[in-house]
Computed example of a mutant assay.
Amino acid sequence: MADLPEGFDNIEHLQKTWNQEHNRRVDRYFKDVQGNGDLSGVRPSLKLACRALDNDNMYASWMRSDLFYNIMGYGRKNLAVFYGSKFDNAPSVAGHPQLFFVFSQDESASPPEESPIQHEKSVRLMKFSCISGDDDGSTKPAITKANMTEIANEIKGIFLSGNRGITYTAGNKSASYTDPENGFAKGNYLLVNSRADGIEIYQKICNVIDVPFKQEKLIVNDPDKPSTTTASAGKITILGKQVQNRRYRPVAVLRFRSAYISLGNLIPPIFLIDTTLRNTGLVRYP
Rank of each mutant, 00 (worst) to 15 (best):
residue 224 D to N: 11
residue 116 P to H: 10
residue 172 N to S: 14
residue 9 D to T: 01
residue 188 N to Y: 10
residue 157 G to K: 09
residue 162 G to E: 10
residue 19 N to H: 07
residue 188 N to K: 11
residue 14 L to D: 09
residue 108 S to D: 13
residue 119 H to F: 13
residue 279 N to H: 11
residue 51 R to S: 08
residue 201 I to L: 15
residue 61 S to H: 06
residue 118 Q to R: 06
residue 39 L to D: 12
residue 189 Y to I: 01
residue 99 L to G: 02
residue 202 Y to G: 05
residue 71 I to H: 15
residue 198 G to Q: 05
residue 158 I to M: 12
residue 228 T to A: 12
residue 275 T to C: 15
residue 110 S to V: 01
residue 22 H to F: 14
residue 272 L to S: 02
residue 94 A to V: 01
residue 135 D to R: 12
residue 261 I to V: 12
residue 185 A to D: 14
residue 64 R to W: 08
residue 34 Q to P: 01
residue 143 I to N: 03
residue 88 D to N: 10
residue 70 N to H: 13
residue 216 E to H: 04
residue 88 D to W: 08
residue 49 A to S: 09
residue 217 K to T: 01
residue 42 V to A: 15
residue 159 F to M: 11
residue 83 Y to G: 06
residue 107 E to D: 13
residue 152 A to Q: 03
residue 277 L to K: 08
residue 169 T to I: 14
residue 65 S to Y: 13
residue 42 V to L: 15
residue 240 G to I: 03
residue 69 Y to C: 13
residue 247 R to M: 13
residue 169 T to F: 07
residue 167 T to Q: 15
residue 29 Y to N: 08
residue 286 P to K: 13
residue 29 Y to R: 14
residue 5 P to Q: 07
residue 166 I to T: 09
residue 206 C to A: 14
residue 209 I to T: 02
residue 173 K to H: 12
residue 253 V to R: 13
residue 80 A to T: 00
residue 141 P to T: 03
residue 15 Q to V: 00
residue 152 A to Y: 03
residue 84 G to Y: 02
residue 1 M to W: 05
residue 203 Q to R: 13
residue 238 I to L: 15
residue 252 A to Y: 06
residue 186 K to H: 09
residue 36 N to D: 12
residue 9 D to V: 01
residue 274 D to F: 03
residue 191 L to F: 12
residue 145 K to Q: 10
residue 137 G to Q: 07
residue 134 D to C: 11
residue 120 E to H: 06
residue 185 A to H: 02
residue 151 I to A: 09
residue 213 F to T: 00
residue 46 L to N: 04
residue 79 L to H: 06
residue 199 I to K: 11
residue 122 S to G: 11
residue 42 V to Q: 14
residue 271 F to K: 01
residue 69 Y to G: 09
residue 240 G to Y: 09
residue 233 A to Y: 04
residue 123 V to K: 03
residue 116 P to V: 04
residue 83 Y to T: 00
residue 191 L to H: 11
residue 37 G to D: 02
residue 29 Y to I: 04
residue 49 A to G: 05
residue 258 S to H: 02
residue 197 D to M: 07
residue 267 I to Y: 14
residue 226 P to Y: 12
residue 260 Y to Q: 05
residue 67 L to Q: 08
residue 102 V to S: 15
residue 206 C to K: 04
residue 274 D to V: 00
residue 159 F to H: 02
residue 258 S to T: 00
residue 177 Y to G: 02
residue 154 E to S: 14
residue 270 I to T: 09
residue 262 S to W: 02
residue 277 L to R: 04
residue 71 I to L: 15
residue 270 I to F: 10
residue 152 A to V: 00
residue 205 I to S: 03
residue 181 E to I: 01
